[in-house]
Simulated assay, not measured.
Amino acid sequence: MNDLIKRFTTFDKLIATSLIKFLYWIGLAGIALSVIVGIFGAIGAMTQSFLAGLGMLIAVPLGGVIGLVFWRFICEIYIVIFGIYDRLGEIRDK
């Protein structure tokens, strides 16, 4: 517990990487929820236009996969940036 308080009061070790990992999982849940809602929307659209609903049924999971890859890429960029900061601190200390 004392170490946790020390991490918040000093800026020797950044907590951003832990926060980014937490936000990554929240983003994954949001993307999965969006895909599920989109699939139900596609099924509902099939009652009005079969081809439009079928197109949505194909596009929604494809968009979800692209969203997952993009979200992972964005989170990795942030982790690399904060990792560079940590490494520079180690170099400075040597």
Results as ranks from 00 to 15, higher is better:
1 M>P: 01
3 D>W: 11
4 L>N: 08
5 I>H: 12
5 I>A: 13
5 I>F: 15
8 F>E: 07
8 F>Y: 11
8 F>H: 09
9 T>Q: 12
12 D>S: 13
13 K>V: 14
14 L>P: 10
14 L>T: 15
16 A>G: 02
16 A>F: 06
17 T>S: 15
18 S>M: 09
19 L>I: 05
19 L>D: 03
24 Y>N: 07
24 Y>M: 10
25 W>M: 14
26 I>Q: 04
27 G>L: 10
27 G>V: 05
28 L>P: 01
33 L>V: 08
35 V>S: 01
36 I>E: 05
38 G>V: 00
41 G>R: 02
44 G>L: 14
45 A>I: 08
45 A>C: 11
45 A>K: 12
47 T>R: 09
48 Q>L: 11
48 Q>T: 10
50 F>C: 03
50 F>Q: 12
52 A>F: 14
54 L>I: 10
55 G>W: 00
57 L>W: 04
58 I>H: 00
58 I>S: 02
60 V>K: 00
60 V>S: 00
61 P>A: 03
63 G>Y: 04
63 G>T: 01
64 G>W: 02
67 G>E: 04
67 G>S: 10
68 L>Q: 01
69 V>I: 15
70 F>R: 07
71 W>C: 05
73 F>L: 08
74 I>L: 14
75 C>D: 07
75 C>V: 06
76 E>M: 11
77 I>D: 03
77 I>Q: 00
